[in-house]
Write a protein that binds this DNA or RNA. Structure first.
Lengths: 257, 257
DNA sequence: CGACATGTTGAAGCGGTTCAAGTAGGGTGG
DNA sequence: CCACCCTACTTGAACCGCTTCAACATGTCG
């Protein structure tokens, strides 16, 4: 066991360059000494199986997690037991920062497939970022980015017709794969149609119908989980389509600005 | 002018205890020395008139702002010129942190009435929070809280029927007023029906109809901007009502957890 | 192989938007 | 101070996008 731990530590060290912590450290030039410190506070966790929880809504908040491999969904549950998916997360994502306020997890994080994560005790991370200016900045930056992403998501939920929602979902996912060095045009959906529908505020049937329709129109090829995008420009165009209800979306107030 | 500035500084000092910076500083026990440092980096801004912008989408990011008096809306604008309101902000709110990533404002902030704000240059704030642990923690906490609020907003946009959306809007606003020491049951809406509709992803006409309906049912009294809540429990109950489309909102995956 | 979950497709129903018309404030200029 | 205008808001009626319901197909796992 102790031998394993040594191996793990070495592996983490080498992996830091591949995961979000690399982007989190290196851009602001952490030296070897700082990188060492960071490595020391990271805990290895055994792989989490599909369907297992990384944490549940209501759990006390102790750590944030970076995804090393696999994907997961975060979602809230309301009084009636209904779920609302907040986001899907891919390798390199840092999750859990939304629980700082209140020190209780307000989302559940569930693995969509077998995943591998690094656990980072938050109090240690916070102390460290007190000493390393670049780290503090990067934490703030990550949360800022998360806010921006959610603004987009909110806009889609509030206005967009169903085709634009799904097109938007696909192009964003594609872009995220591209940014991680995977193919932007061919990938597997780790989430179910149900999950996609939920996150986009739609019915499952509508997702099914639209995917068929997109395929019919030559925008993409889809077979179960596998998706191949054939006409990205058209898909992007679709995702920008605004709803017909554009009535109250222009500011009519007589601004002095 | 220089005399004015002196007066202003004194005023800000005394006001820090009333605005969000007080909650931001005191809970973690800033001593007079630290409070002094904080006061020094805060810039006074002349009042912003109704309809004026605090900043616009696309502006370079330099400062965050705390609202001392009045209210404003933040919104994004898409390619087609359509607006989507992200949030309404009240006195004590700190806004602008979502622009850290990219260092460009991704929202516009527009005054709903004449407002008074404190401008805090972000680089100064960041340096200071590097020295004051409690300040760093509180910045993270504020962003975490913002994420949580947006999760709620997303859930409403994705699932809730229109009555629940409006009820939720009203109870949340009420709660925010209460937390600021104002009446929770009687207040003025600084935003137009159009703005409410936009932020909730609805048509203006629906807002109008629902307000009439709520009044008819004895839930509240409304006359133009003035609102008096008569049956808060019923309103809260309404806000928790889930949509009829609760089909794909329960997780059917056979989790091993 | 059987059972259950997931996904697909068709048809009906409805919630909420859109369209249309009218009312009421609030500000401006004569 | 009043008449005017423009914007914000309200209310009614028709329409439609999407959901819901239902039935079936296809995997998947014990």
């Amino acid at each position: 066991m102790s031998r394993n731990r040594i191996v793990d530590l070495a592996e983490i060290r080498s992996n830091c360059k591949k995961c979000s912590l690399f982007q989190l450290c290196m851009p602001m030039g952490l030296d070897d000494n700082d990188l060492e410190k960071l490595d020391k506070i990271i805990k290895r966790r055994r792989p989490v199986e599909k369907g297992d929880y990384l944490y549940r809504m209501g759990d006390p908040f102790h750590s944030v997690y970076t995804i090393r491999a696999g994907s997961l969904k975060t979602y809230t549950t309301n009084q009636n037991g209904q779920e609302q998916i907040i986001a899907f997360h891919l390798p390199g994502d840092l999750i859990g920062l939304d629980a700082i306020q209140g020190e209780i997890h307000t989302c559940s994080a569930k693995a969509l497939e077998t995943i591998s994560v690094c656990e980072i005790p938050f109090d240690r991370l916070e102390s460290l970022s007190q000493k390393i200016p670049g780290l503090q900045h990067h934490l703030l930056k990550l949360m800022s980015e998360e806010l921006q992403l959610e603004h987009c998501h909110m806009t889609i939920l509030a206005r967009a017709p169903v085709e634009a929602r799904l097109a938007s979902f696909l192009t964003q996912l594609s872009e995220r794969f591209r940014a991680r060095g995977y193919s932007a045009t061919e990938f597997n959906l780790s989430m179910s149609r149900n999950d996609i529908a939920n996150s986009l505020g739609m019915a499952v049937e509508t997702i099914s119908r639209l995917l068929s329709q997109f395929q019919e129109h030559g925008l993409l090829q889809v077979e179960r989980k596998h998706v191949q995008i054939l006409d990205m420009p058209a898909l992007v165009e679709l995702s920008n389509r605004c709803g017909p209800n554009a009535q109250n979306t222009r500011d009519s107030s007589h601004g002095t600005a």
